[in-house]
């Protein structure tokens, strides 16, 4: 559940708000152009407000109940290039196979 004031983003949380970079990437790799568009259009106008909300907490100390919003914001930060540069394609054009590209830093960065 997202904080009340962001209830309009609730439908996107179930689709995009994953705790790890790998899980968020797996969503990026399968999202349709339509899904990219809808996420972007819903999120961009609220981006500043979301960040103000998240900045109530110190990095690494986001309370459990706020983590879905945090993960949604991370997902948006990672997905937006697909809207802004790749015409809502779920791959980077003319690129190496993203599945073979491992985020080897692990998953300890995303709290």
């Amino acid at each position: 559940m997202l904080p009340e004031q962001f209830s309009s983003l609730e439908p996107f949380a179930g689709v995009w708000a994953f705790p790890t970079e790998l899980q968020r990437s797996q969503q990026r790799w399968v999202a349709t152009a339509e899904e990219y568009r809808e996420f972007y259009e819903a999120m961009l106008p609220l981006l500043d407000e979301v960040l103000v909300y998240l900045d109530q907490y110190q990095p690494g100390a986001t309370p459990e109940s706020v983590l879905p919003l945090y993960h949604l914001a991370l997902a948006f930060a990672e997905a937006a290039p697909h809207n802004e540069l790749y015409d809502c394609s779920n791959t980077v054009p003319n690129s190496f196979d993203a599945h073979r590209f491992v985020a080897a830093h692990g998953e300890n960065l995303d709290r």
């Binding site: 998240l54 945090y70 991370l74 930060a77």
Partner: peptide, 12 residues
């Protein structure tokens, strides 16, 4: 990052 918003900007 000193703030969560910086962390998200870094992710981008």
């Amino acid at each position: 990052p000193e703030t969560v918003s910086e962390r998200i900007a870094i992710a981008h």
